[in-house]
Nucleic acid binder design. Structure first.
Lengths: 141, 141
DNA sequence: CTAGAAACTGAAAACCGTTTTCAGTTTTAG
DNA sequence: CTAAAACTGAAAACGGTTTTCAGTTTCTAG
């Protein structure tokens, strides 16, 4: 996947694209924003912006490899995070919060599965589902 | 997850529910039907049936644990398969076909991830994405 | 600078899978 | 049989996302 490790090699982005990128990037790795969260945060900095523009910015940033778009079973919208190394995601069934999980199935295992199933695997997506710390605490109270 | 291994213990289903169940079950394990596929096949056996009824039947069968509802990144609708043992799925990016993959991350690894992230994991969902055999053949021609 | 091309914008409408509402009809339990 | 519960299909609603439209802004030659 295309990625820009240095700012200097990154294509110049239109102002709004830059703004959307900053909002997603500011969360830092490990934080995740649903599309609605991105809207909300972007609107704080540029009140009049239309949701069409935000959608288009997210799509472009995703195509440029600057951010990752995540689709999780049970979630009704996409989530976004700064592009980075592959990892799994955890989503809380109760509050919907999403958290990075530092794990990927080994390349060897995936290659083996690809071979035995005669498929070409370009992407492996792993998600965990259950209850997050705060929801567990709240429930036990 | 609730499951009925013997027909005798399975709740009696209304005719339409039975029909939807048969359509999904007939595919056998390893085959997958998008919602639209289920409609199409069900309509062949009962022309007048409404899509509302099919949706409701799929939801009920899913709640009864008789079928599994699958949501895959990149797919625009749900897929259904007869309930069975946990496994991963492969989805072809080109034709959208879905195939079972006999693999689940080890319980030990998942337990370890749950502990180190302070989460309670109730479900693990793994999907592979790429090109299936027939699409690869077609492309190389 | 200027003219034209290319990129970008926001409102509104379209889209599409799915869920809900409504007004019944059918099935089940007693 | 009768009342409650379950089921039905058409139509409308829903919600996230994409497309269309009619411009406006930005970039690139010249």
């Amino acid at each position: 996947m295309l990625q820009y490790r240095k700012m200097s090699t990154m294509p110049r982005l239109a102002k709004n694209y830059r703004l959307v990128f900053d909002v997603v990037r500011k969360q830092g790795h490990g934080r995740h924003l649903a599309t609605a969260d991105v809207f909300r945060l972007v609107k704080r900095r540029r009140v009049g912006i239309g949701f069409t523009t935000v959608y288009r910015a997210l799509a472009k940033l995703r195509d440029l490899g600057l951010i990752s778009e995540i689709h999780l079973p049970g979630a009704d919208s996409a989530y976004y995070e700064p592009a980075g190394d592959a990892h799994a995601h955890f989503r809380c069934d109760l509050c919907g919060s999403v958290k990075d999980i530092a794990y990927v199935p080994s390349k060897r295992v995936v290659a083996q599965l690809a071979q035995s199933n005669a498929i070409e695997v370009n992407d492996v997506i792993l998600s965990l589902h259950g209850r997050c710390v705060s929801c567990r605490e709240r429930e036990s109270a």
